[in-house]
Write a protein that binds this DNA or RNA. Structure first.
Length: 950
RNA sequence: GCGGGGGUAGCCUAGCCUGGCCAAUGGCGCAGGGCUUAGGACCCUGUCCUUAGCGGUCCGAGGGUUCGAAUCCCUCCCCCCGCACCA
């Protein structure tokens, strides 16, 4: 009697543990080291986590079947702020946080314990390990660990890593604009905003125009247009401030001065000046070093930039139209005391050649869009975007740009900015283009942080090495490569330190903690020694130890002495590392491509020699449940443990495997999870009943069945190697179950050795996905040891008889046709008469195939070639349509006419039994043919006649 | 805007790179039949239209290349994902 599924699963989990089946030791065999990003332990594992873990698990078990010495370790991540923040909310008694804990089955009287972050760190890893074991993962738990300073050994490892980066100059102190909350006194990430998601600080270049030893400061987003500056715009009504900025006197809007004071500038207001007071004066423009006049306009906004704008009428529609306006505005010029001649002498300067535009794109678009004056703000905004796009992406700097002439705008932009910054003619200012509001309801500002530490992912040489690493890696699926390439190029310096949260302190600067993505980039190496190093005293955890173990510096004896460690221990760690590293595969959700996985590449190339760079990444989408995104609100959210309770571990694993591969979101089908368990039981019963029983004669159908089995094994391995688990399940399970049913239908009693082999190998393939029931089968059929560590026979081409497969296919196709015809003729009395194709048709088929293979594809040409055979020509006018069909079908089983005839004659009895009619096999043209059906016969497609012959 | 992935039958999915056994894989659902006291499970069959199997239409839409297109090329429409100081 079959036992309860849960009991059965627990039984095998217990046995694996007792026998230490998955504890990996360095050995002689070929190793396979795979791992998965450790989970952040602020809650129970859910089905979403489980997808990635199960894919790792499938690979681990598959590789064991193929004879690899597999290391699959696991750890827990506690670095960062969420746990600390959540604990704080518990301390405050925040109801929503309490409810989250309640939803994780935490008893009421234990809730308060979670006000201490340490309690989270103690509680959830235990629960996670329990749940994962309940899922049947083949993890070497001896190597588990926890991040942060709570684990001195890991803490030392991270400090070592940062020292290595630091000494190479790859960790630098940097200045960086961030969206900042003045209330929380911290950066406001996207997730912490109630308004303004996706907003980033926009970089304005402040241009300094010298005037009487002071500077009028204009802001621009297009520094490359400085060569086309003709004048400045100010708002005559606006009161600008004169401010002492870093020792210079700047004229700019009050708001701009305020912003600068938050962006690492020393700012003190020393006076003020109305725009009107500046009109008509001239100031020396940066870069071009030429005095240009100051003119009035209505579009200067003190909130935006500095409230003063440099005018580039050639490429800025606003400037163009404002210039047109002022030139025509006699009264205005008079009011502000401007010399009309001076104003009219201001002419645009062509600076950029871009696709589809002449000398002055701004003028062209103003005309094209029919913009009449400065008041048409919406149209002007659109015009600005159009010009900017074509200028930026297709534009090339003209002669006037001096040394930048001929350079694409895309490149010139940054170079020109940098030159002006260097010469002190410009500065930077950051601002938000749209409001951002922090979760605490405070409007955010842009702050420039300058004591922040960065990892220099923007570094050119480092990027080159990262690209080299990527080029040598296996990616599953391969389509992720483009994504990775893009990320490696796009990644900029990464702020790697935080003031708050759990973690490791920066070794040379106690004020900072290493941030959570940055302490998890090379820790896969730590797995190789984690079970050994954890026993060492803190005094032994020195950089020289890690230098030796991971980089081979110094020698074991010296290091042992320095650290007061047994030399054996040091040697053992070095051996473990050398044996296991690099890792062969790391599996993760696709969301980590743009940060964690790319960081992993970077850090490996910085710290390890090339032979220890990562070998492979597997990436996957996010789980859907019954086609829906998993969410608490839709009720589709499932913790791992509740799912196991509902469906069993094997069922979940199998369903996940069948959910789909690739970067698209795979679907967990609850219906399948609900039904698959029964199929497993059926398989168990079947194996029990049939293993080792049957006849000893080997018949044609037995050869077919063995061939079907091994061709499936071959395909299964091909798919599994590429992490195509869905295809692996289909080939290794579903297809074979179908073949099995067919086999049983085709023979009264199976062949003893073939059916036993089938049960054994199928169980091995299934064990990757459903290990528990597979162990049960393995034991039932009397195999020793565990199926989990058994080896699948190498696919042997000798066990695959392709003629047997082809002949069976002819039969199956014929039966499909017969079913169809019989369905149509209803109860017409009579026998089944089959006509195999006449001799000449086989020649014809060969001839057609040959000419097509030779590259002759024109119907005419094939015809004339074929008709040169007198035997074929004899059949005259029926040939053309046949040739047409043969060209189209190109049916190409390997067997010939004789084999087909033999197969049909052999199976006449079977057919007769299946269809309940007598079956006769004839050859076209050599038997009666009352309805003229025989002429339809083709190779591999006998003609059919139902009825009685006279 | 930048970059990436997609659109296949009732639903989900395979096939596409390397064109041809592709009316198109497998699962789920649904229907009929078998088995069964019944139900479930299991097995068989069917699940675009048509039809004594060979026909027609079909793989987001429209063109093109080819003897032949789900697959290659062009144009268009639509959907999803990432764009950072965060796990």
């Amino acid at each position: 009697m079959a036992m309860n599924t849960a009991e059965m699963e627990l039984k095998w989990q217990e046995r694996w543990r007792e026998e230490r089946v998955f504890e990996a030791e360095p050995g002689n065999g070929e190793k396979y080291f795979l791992n998965v990003p450790y989970p952040y332990i602020n809650g129970l594992l859910h089905i979403g986590h489980t997808l990635t873990y199960s894919r790792t698990e499938f690979m681990a078990r598959y590789k064991r079947l193929r004879g690899y010495n597999v290391l699959f370790p696991y750890a827990f991540h506690a670095t960062g702020t969420p746990i600390v923040a959540a604990a704080g909310r518990v301390a405050d008694g925040e109801e929503s946080q309490m409810n989250i804990l309640r939803s994780m089955d935490i008893p009421e009287d234990e809730l308060s314990a979670f006000s201490d972050p340490l309690h989270w760190v103690e509680y959830f890893p235990i629960e996670a390990e329990r749940d994962l074991n309940r899922l049947g993962v083949s993890v070497d738990w001896r190597r588990k660990f926890m991040t942060t300073s709570l684990n001195p050994a890991y803490d030392a490892f991270i400090r070592w890593q940062f020292n290595r980066l630091h000494e190479q100059g790859l960790v630098r102190k940097g200045r960086h604009p961030v969206v900042w909350c003045t209330h929380d006194n911290s950066p406001v990430g996207d997730h912490a905003r109630i308004e303004g998601e996706g907003e980033m600080p926009q970089e304005f270049v402040l241009l300094k125009f010298e005037i009487d030893g002071e500077y009028i400061v204009a802001a621009t987003l297009r520094p490359e247009t400085v060569f086309g500056q003709t004048n400045l715009w100010v708002d005559p009504e606006e009161e600008y401030v004169k401010a002492d900025v870093d020792g210079e006197v700047w004229i700019l809007s009050k708001q701009a001065a305020q912003k600068l004071s938050e962006q690492k500038h020393e700012v003190a207001t020393v006076g003020s000046v109305f725009g009107s007071q500046l009109l008509g004066k001239e100031a020396v423009a940066p870069m071009i070093r030429r005095p240009i006049p100051i003119l009035p306009s209505s579009f200067c906004d003190p909130e935006k930039g500095t409230g003063i704008v440099t005018s580039v009428p050639s490429d800025a529609p606003d400037d163009w139209i404002a210039l047109v306006d002022i030139k025509a505005d006699e009264a205005g010029m008079d009011r502000y005391g401007l010399d009309p001649e001076m104003v009219r002498s201001v002419e645009p300067i062509a600076i950029i050649t871009s696709e589809g535009w002449g000398d002055f794109p701004a003028g062209e678009i103003v005309e094209r869009m029919g913009i009449k004056d400065q008041t048409e703000r919406d149209k002007l905004l659109e015009a600005k975007h159009v010009i900017y796009r074509s200028g930026f992406y297709t534009g090339v700097m003209r002669e006037v740009a001096g040394e930048y002439a001929g350079m694409p705008v895309e490149e010139a932009k940054d170079r020109i900015r940098d030159e002006m910054l260097e010469k002190g003619e410009a500065a930077l200012m950051f601002e938000l283009s749209n409001p951002v509001v922090c979760r605490c309801l405070t409007p955010s500002i842009v702050k420039v942080v300058d004591d922040q530490w960065f990892i220099a992912y923007g570094d050119h040489d480092w990027k080159a090495r990262a690209r080299e690493c990527l080029a040598g890696m296996n990616l599953y699926p391969e389509v992720a490569r483009k994504q990775f390439e893009h990320v490696l190029g796009w990644l900029r310096d990464w702020a790697c330190t935080r003031e708050l949260g759990l973690g490791t302190k920066l070794p040379w600067d106690d004020n900072w903690m290493v941030e959570s993505l940055s302490d998890s980039t090379i820790y896969m190496a730590y797995y190789t020694i984690s079970h050994i190093i954890t026993d060492l005293p803190e005094a032994a955890l020195t950089d020289s130890l890690f230098d030796h173990v991971f980089l081979g510096k110094s020698d074991a004896a010296t290091v042992a002495m320095e650290t007061g460690t047994e030399i054996d221990t040091v040697e053992r760690m070095r051996e473990e590392f050398l044996y296991w590293y690099p890792f062969d595969l790391r599996v993760s959700g696709k969301d980590l491509i743009q940060n964690h996985l790319s960081f992993t590449i970077f850090n490996h190339t910085a710290i390890f020699p090339q032979e220890h760079w990562p070998r492979g990444f597997g990436t996957n989408g996010w789980i859907l449940i019954g086609g829906q995104k998993m969410s608490k609100s839709s009720g589709s959210f499932r913790t791992l443990r509740s799912a196991i309770e509902e469906w069993s571990a094997d069922a979940i694993r199998f369903t996940l495997a069948y959910g789909g591969d690739g970067l698209d979101d795979p679907n967990f089908d609850p219906d399948l999870a609900g039904t698959i368990g029964d199929k497993f039981n059926t398989w168990l019963e079947f194996a029990q009943e049939r293993y080792g029983k049957g006849v000893d004669d080997e018949r044609a159908i037995d050869r077919w069945f063995r061939s079907a089995l091994y061709s499936a094994v071959e395909d299964y391995c091909d798919h599994m190697d590429l992490m195509e688990f869905r295809a692996g399940v289909k080939r290794g399970y579903y297809d074979l179950q179908r073949d099995l049913r067919w086999y049983l239908r085709r023979c009264d009693e199976p062949n003893r050795s073939v059916i036993s082999e089938f049960i054994k190998v199928t169980t091995q393939m299934l064990s990757v996905f459903a290990p528990h029931v597979s162990e049960e089968v393995w034991e039932t059929i009397g195999r020793s040891g565990f199926v989990s560590v058994s080896q699948i026979p190498d696919p042997d081409p000798g066990s695959i008889d392709s003629d047997a497969l082809d002949a069976e296919s002819v039969l199956v196709d014929l039966m499909d046709d017969l079913r169809e015809v019989l369905g149509l003729v209803g109860d017409t009395p009579g026998d089944i008469h089959l006509y195999t194709a006449a001799d000449w048709k086989w020649h014809l088929a060969d001839a057609v195939r040959d000419s097509v293979d030779d590259g002759v594809v024109k119907f005419q040409d094939v015809m004339s070639k074929v008709m040169s055979d007198p035997e074929i020509r004899k059949n005259g006018k029926v040939v053309p349509p046949l040739v047409k069909r043969l060209i189209q079908e190109r049916a190409s089983y390997g067997i010939g006419m004789d084999a087909e005839n033999e197969k049909l004659s052999d199976e006449a009895d079977f057919l007769s039994q299946e269809f309940g009619r007598k079956v006769h096999v004839w050859t076209e043209g050599q038997a009666e043919d009352p309805m003229g059906k025989a002429k339809n016969a083709l190779p591999y497609k006998p003609a059919i006649f139902i009825g009685n012959m006279e």
